[in-house]
Design a protein around this nucleic acid. Structure first.
Length: 578
DNA sequence: GCCGTTTTCGGCCCGACTGTTTTCAGTCG
């Protein structure tokens, strides 16, 4: 049983209670517990077995008892009772834009709707429009909501959404009468996936801006077009639909609006509670004392007035950011990165030569890179045999001598085999300056006689030549689940052995993810942020790794890529000699 | 159901938009 199972259960209870018309504050308690468990990097079921879970934020006597019941028996009485009252497909209707708990309850009660297919039928037959409280417009909205839900296919990865958002922001910026345009929402917070794109615009001519926004090339549907808000969808390369919202505000309230629309919702709730305690009110127009506005032009004004240090967007998740103010000031930035320590060339499955990679890296201002092609067992990735690797090492050394201004380290991405050993012999690894150990095969549980992914990762970290573990959990966002790792043990071993853990900056991976970054930092582990680039174009993905690192609270001193080359070499030597 | 600079009960964030039940409930972010 994983945290994800518990999260699902508590969200389901909350959904069903909502449809049932229960007290909204009680419902909120269940949602709060679900979110806390989601934000907990360690195994909550294990915690429940070994002791007390009421230390967790928002978990009291009642919900702790329900967690324990689920851990002990595999079910929760409250949920069993709720599920007896409603068909299983009903909560899914809450995901439809325009359908809230009241309408879901209504269609179930009045029309016997049990799920999505039923709802489509009653919408088409006209029965839905006959219900009291429903009209032609509501039915149209719901039908469109169903269509959107079926074509949007869930959340969009950061690396797909951010370039699109930037393109639309540029287009709005170019319109007459626009003072400023910024990205807001979960995209600005650097979340690994996003629901929709939020753009914020400062201008006195909202209606005209919104109208032109809805007429941009590539707009597939216009969902709303008012004086201050426009909402459209576009079609992505995989034919899914992505929603883009534009809001227009007055320039003197831009800070308040940017803060408000950046969220997260939970972070904003905390801020507003803080305002209320001071007898103030916080909304998207500013911070108010009675009718008088006391902050709002900039975001930092608002935090300052509430006696908080500025919270960088990546930390605005209500994960304790108000209690950890020292974090914020020196979070790692793209400018701090002096090199990229994981990339491939045509020698294995990359698309560019050593020279091309080195020149592109130098152009970015990097002082060092490590060429890390695949080892022999990664046959699909054209991994290098021992003989080819020996030649490759000589080739890298030669380019390093030829190109001034950047150091090219001999590296390799060496497979961690299923028995925990490394794919290259020690004498070959000893010739490398930098070794990334990665699991690429047998990512399942392990089973009888076989080593688990956790055991293999630990074995690799014990190896003197392994400098870092690459993409430690092996997940592919929206495509492959992470390996079942005991992350607590992994970070402890990383600390003990002086092995770094990678934040793989590819938007397909973002591995380690934010919560694991936090866990590693708390254990005192040094991180390395690398693009795993297979083409010079992919160096630009570094920013996604930076966002993920910042979400986990990583500062300059936590990241090996921010070291000078000399310090980096010293750190590598220290592990080799220990 | 949780929680405490409002501390064991009474409160729990805020405003906009929309459609329709014509005075506001439901939904959303």
């Amino acid at each position: 049983m994983s945290n994800a199972d518990l999260v699902r259960i508590f969200e389901r209870i909350a959904d069903l209670m909502e449809i049932d018309g229960a007290d909204r504050f009680r419902i909120n308690s269940y949602r709060r517990v679900a979110r806390t468990i989601k934000d907990t990097p360690t195994d909550v079921a294990e915690m429940a077995r070994n002791g007390d879970v009421t230390d967790l934020q928002g978990v009291g006597k009642g919900t702790a008892e329900r967690i324990r019941q689920f851990v002990d028996t595999g079910h929760i009485d409250v949920l069993v009772q709720l599920e007896a009252k409603f068909p299983p497909g009903l909560p899914a209707l809450l995901d439809i834009p325009g359908m809230g708990p009241k309408k879901v309850g209504l269609v179930h009660r009045e029309l016997g709707v049990t799920g999505l297919e039923d709802l489509k039928k009653v919408a088409a037959s006209g029965k839905l429009a006959e219900l009291s409280g429903m009209g032609v417009a509501s039915v149209k909205k719901i039908s469109e909501g169903i269509a959107f839900l079926e074509s949007s296919g869930g959340r969009t990865p950061l690396g797909i959404a951010l370039p699109i958002a930037e393109m639309f922001a540029d287009r709005v910026r170019a319109l007459p009468g626009v003072d400023r345009v910024e990205i807001a929402g979960s995209l600005r917070r650097g979340a690994e996936t996003i629901g929709d794109v939020d753009l914020l615009c400062a201008s006195g001519e909202g209606a005209a801006i919104v109208r032109q926004f809805t007429e941009f090339d590539g707009v597939r549907r216009v969902l709303a077009a008012g004086d201050t808000k426009g909402s459209v969808t576009i079609e992505l390369a995989d034919r899914r639909e992505l929603q883009i919202d534009l809001r227009v505000v007055e320039t003197d309230a831009f800070g308040a609006a940017w803060q408000y629309f950046t969220g997260s919702k939970e972070h904003n709730v905390r801020l507003r509670e803080r305002a209320v305690r001071r007898k103030w009110r916080l909304n998207e127009y500013g911070l108010y004392h009675e009718k008088r506005r006391i902050a709002g032009e900039s975001e930092s004004d608002i935090y300052k007035k509430l006696e908080l240090s500025f919270v960088p967007p990546e930390l605005r998740e209500d994960r304790g950011e108000f209690d950890r103010p020292s974090d914020a000031a020196d979070l790692v930035t793209l400018k701090d990165i002096r090199g990229d320590l994981h990339m491939h060339t045509v020698a294995s499955d990359g698309k560019c030569t050593i020279e091309a990679m080195a020149c592109a890296a130098k152009e970015r201002g990097y002082k060092f890179i490590a060429i890390c092609d695949h080892s022999k067992s990664s046959t699909i990735a054209n991994g290098l045999t021992i003989e080819r690797m020996k030649k490759h090492i000589r080739a890298i050394r030669k380019v390093d001598e030829a190109i001034e201004g950047i150091a090219i380290l001999v590296g390799c991405e060496c497979d961690i085999l299923s028995d925990g050993s490394m794919d290259y012999p020690d004498d070959l690894l000893a010739q490398c300056d930098w070794v990334v150990g990665s699991i690429h095969s047998a990512m399942g549980k392990g089973g009888s006689g076989k080593l688990s992914p956790t055991e293999r990762t630990i074995a690799a970290m014990e190896h003197r030549y392994v400098c870092a573990i690459g993409h430690p959990t092996g997940r592919l966002i929206n495509r492959r689940a992470p390996m079942d790792l005991d992350m607590q043990t992994i970070v402890k071993t990383a600390k003990r052995t002086g092995t770094m853990l990678e934040i793989n900056a590819s938007w397909r991976r973002l591995d380690l993810k934010d919560l694991h970054v936090r866990l590693a930092l708390d254990a005192g582990v040094v991180l390395t942020i690398n693009t795993d680039a297979h083409h010079t174009d992919q160096f630009a993905q570094m920013r996604y790794g930076i966002m993920t690192a910042r979400r986990g609270g990583a500062t300059v001193k936590d990241v090996a890529n921010c070291l000078t080359l000399a310090s980096l070499r010293k750190r590598i030597a220290k592990k080799r000699d220990s």
